[in-house]
Amino acid sequence: MKKLLLSALIFIFSAFLPVSGNFLLAADVEINNVSYDPTRELYDEFNGVFEAKYKADTGKTLEVVQSHGGSSKQARTVIEGNEADVVTLALAIDITEIEKAGLIKPGWQKEFPHNSAPYTSTIVFLVRKGNPKNIHDWDDLIREGVGVITPNPKTSGGARWNYLAAWAFADRKFNHDEAKVKQFLKEIFEHVLVLDTGARGSTNTFVANGQGDVLLAWENEAYLALEEAPGKFEIVSPPLSILAEPPVAIVDAYVDKKGTREVATEYLNYLYTPEGQRIAGKHFYRPSDPAIAEEFKDQFQLKMELVTIDDPLFGGWEKAQAKHFNDGGVFDQIYTR
């Protein structure tokens, strides 16, 4: 009986062995890139290209280890000791948190070109094929019978951009009359059918569950949804939206500890080369380099007017956060259900 059991055990474990033996080869150099959720494909391709280039230049093998998750959560793990050599996150405020923990030196946002954002994105509308509700601009969202899908700005980073983009539009339209701007935002949220907690949840609500007429989404997310369900949706770029600049930074404390500053710097710099910029564009992020962005003019509506978070209207993330999204802020005032 013992023999039977023993042989059964050996059989089970030996079934696993062949797959477990293959990966003993370690790279000469290894760096960790702690990133946020939707950059997976981008860095899959970019890392492959950069690793090959590094090998050609130095003769050493490099492995870039990726980590993906919610941007704030990822920043938190870095603060708690997840030794990222570089962080490539969704919001500058998340990198600022790492800076506050003393791991990144102040001034990181000037370390690389374009506010340390090698690629940008913006908020667009994803509508059903043929745009049956004829939605072209922000004020079409509050038309009778239009159902809007967006995540909750209280819990989702992406949703805050949706909200602020709408705010920027209304500020223009109503000539800085804040009472009217708030009324406009209030009406938009009255048209929201489902307020999910995260951007992916909203995309699923719109794409898979078929709820609503328009999804307010990241441009790169909207393109992914197009790829997921070809021929069922189209993207509408409103004339005015907001410019999101997902920043990158070197985590000074960890690269100094590991002695990887040089390769980490080279890695992030490579994002700004024409090759790196094209990979970003291919994965639906807008290249920061205007010349390369121009190559993607059929893909992105480049004529959009894009307001940044540092515009006097918002005054940077911390101010916008305090005014709009903290408890008792403007969002709480207009969204009372």
């Binding site: 990966f23 960790n32 702690v34 280890v65 990726q66 980590s67 993906h68 998750g69 990822q74 793990t77 997840n82």
Partner: peptide
């Protein structure tokens, strides 16, 4: 920490 290929 979700390091792919390391801690995932």
């Amino acid at each position: 920490g979700h390091l792919r290929g390391k801690t995932n």
